[in-house]
Amino acid sequence: MAYEVTVDGITISSNEELSEKECRAYIHYIQSKNHNRNIERINLDFEGDDVNLGYYLEPQGFEKIRRITGYLVGTVDRFNDAKRAEERDRVKHM
């Protein structure tokens, strides 16, 4: 990749020089396919009339959901003392 430019905080690498308008068009296209995700980096490889488009999205966090004492929960912070004791004393299978 010979050219590298940063547009809106996104690094775009390419084997051809691109205008800012073209860069924004690629960013818009990727964002339309990946709603609510942030783009980290874009790689463009031009081969004649074809373009190989590669991009990396920022990692997305998730909340672990477990079934504890008959309830689907992420944390036990809302459990009373008895439910917390039941969770603490259960046999954990790994």
Rank of each mutant, 00 (worst) to 15 (best):
K64L: 15
T75W: 01
G74R: 06
V7I: 13
K83N: 10
G61H: 08
S14V: 04
R66F: 14
D77H: 08
K21G: 08
I68C: 04
C23A: 02
G9H: 04
N80G: 13
L44T: 08
K33P: 00
F46G: 03
E63I: 13
G61P: 02
R24S: 01
F62W: 06
T75M: 04
I12S: 02
N34W: 03
R90Q: 15
E87A: 15
V91D: 05
V5L: 11
Y56V: 15
R78N: 15
A2C: 02
I65L: 13
M1P: 06
V5N: 11
F62K: 13
T6S: 13
L57G: 04
G48Q: 02
F46N: 04
C23I: 01
D49I: 12
L72C: 11
V73A: 12
E16F: 08
L18A: 03
N43M: 12
F46I: 11
V51K: 02
I30T: 03
I65S: 10
V91M: 07
M94C: 04
E40K: 09
G54T: 09
S32Y: 01
N43P: 00
I39E: 08
N52Y: 09
N38F: 06
F79N: 08
G70V: 01
I27D: 04
V76G: 11
D8I: 09
D8R: 07
Y26W: 07
N15K: 01
I68G: 03
V7A: 05
E4N: 03
V91P: 00
S19V: 00
D45V: 13
E47R: 09
R37L: 05
E87V: 15
H93Y: 10
G74T: 13
I27Q: 04
M94L: 11
E20G: 06
E4A: 06
K83M: 15
Y71P: 00
G61A: 15
E63L: 13
Y29Q: 11
L72M: 13
E40C: 05
T69Y: 05
R88S: 11
S19A: 07
Y29I: 06
D49G: 03
E58Q: 14
N43W: 07
R66M: 15
D45M: 09
R84S: 07
I68N: 02
